[in-house]
Simulated scan of single mutants.
Amino acid sequence: MRRPSKTFLLFSGAFCAVVLTATGAHAIGDEGNRQPSTGASGNAAGNTLTASATTTRIKVTRISGGGSGNSPKALAPVDPNWQPPACWYEPVATPEELKGAVDRLKKGGDLVAVTPSLSWGEELMVTQYEKGEARTSDSSGYKNYNLGKDGQFWRGVINEERQDDAESYACDRTLFWQDANTLPANDHAPTPDVLAAYAYDKIKVPGTEVELKPAGESKVNLPTWVWLDRATFKEVKVRADLEAAGVWAETTAKPVALHLDPGTGDAETYPASGDCEINADGSIGTPYSKGDAERTPPCGITYLRASGGGPYRLKASITWEISWEGSGGSHGDLPDGTFEAAQDVTVREIQAVNR
């Protein structure tokens, strides 16, 4: 289900609302700390309470690992049914900011986005948020914008990675009030586990190829040693902060195993399962040393047939164990992630001459 790309008018008596259009926008309180968005958005002029459907105040920071020098790649969850959250609620405006937005609306300013997909005009905004008369069943009326109260008005935000999913409409509750230092009592509150799952989707891991010996080409019936340097494959930690709500989470991806697929059935892997576990020092496998040619590697492959007309496509997939900790002492686990890299391996017959 895709969001509308054109503007539609929805009439209810003397009041009108407009579905957000696909133009650029920023929201009240946007001082450059929001994540970029490419989703459907409202029409903004200045610092008004209009915003793109996917504009979020969640700040994402890479704490460690996954440096850009290693061509970082996104993880694929082992569980094919796992997905990051489709939407959640966030604080969007103080009473003063909401009043300012409506005051500008009275002077011909932009409509106010009351849900990710819906904006209201002057009469609806004044009725519900200035006069205090509820216009929807999912939100109360707020006399004089709740000026003098400690808290903020909240609105739904859509994950830009899932904005075409039907589930993203689950956070369409009309702009509502939340007391300071509290979270909404619903399934789409930005709890630490939600932020942890959001951070998971932002994790990038090194895309470096595995080390091979012999390098360049292998020989039939001679072991090929495979290993990963501990300096490259370190833990990757990403932090997601929603400071306006006082909630944070840090999600950590830890490399735990390497799986080898030789690219042909005419090969033996070491171990036989093809699963090379991580060593105590954080490395995987053992680097080849002079004199190891006849030894069985702890992590490696023996090819039994030459690659012939073209190289074999060796696939090496690394499993990353995912855990998180967050505000309030919360913590937990998320599905393991994997990243698969492929590289060509040429295998040749060893030529022998009898005299």
Score class of each variant (00 low, 15 high):
F176W: 09
G326T: 04
D275H: 02
D336E: 15
G108I: 06
G207D: 06
Y198C: 06
G69R: 10
G100H: 08
Y200A: 01
W154D: 05
K6T: 13
E130V: 07
T7F: 15
E97R: 05
Y142L: 02
A352H: 11
E211L: 10
L147P: 10
G337S: 07
P72D: 04
I203G: 00
E268K: 02
Q152D: 05
V157H: 06
V126P: 01
S64Q: 13
E160H: 11
E321M: 07
Y288I: 09
L242E: 01
N181S: 15
V114M: 05
E217C: 07
F11G: 01
D336H: 15
G282C: 04
A293Y: 13
I318W: 02
A280D: 14
S117G: 08
A197W: 03
S289R: 12
P184F: 13
D164F: 15
L9G: 10
D281N: 14
A306M: 08
A45P: 07
Y169C: 04
K107G: 11
A257W: 03
L49Q: 13
N70S: 09
P192M: 07
D187P: 04
F8C: 11
L124E: 04
A40M: 12
G148I: 14
Y145S: 07
D79V: 13
A113E: 00
P223I: 15
R305K: 14
A40Y: 08
D187E: 15
S64H: 06
K219Q: 14
Y198R: 02
S327P: 01
K106I: 14
L258G: 02
N221G: 06
P72Q: 05
E31K: 08
W154K: 06
V345P: 00
G100E: 04
T319P: 00
E123C: 06
S323Y: 08
Y200K: 01
T56N: 02
A113T: 04
T319Y: 03
S218Y: 01
T38D: 10
I284E: 02
G300C: 06
Q343L: 13
D266P: 02
E167R: 05
K237T: 07
S64M: 14
V345N: 00
P4S: 09
T191Q: 07
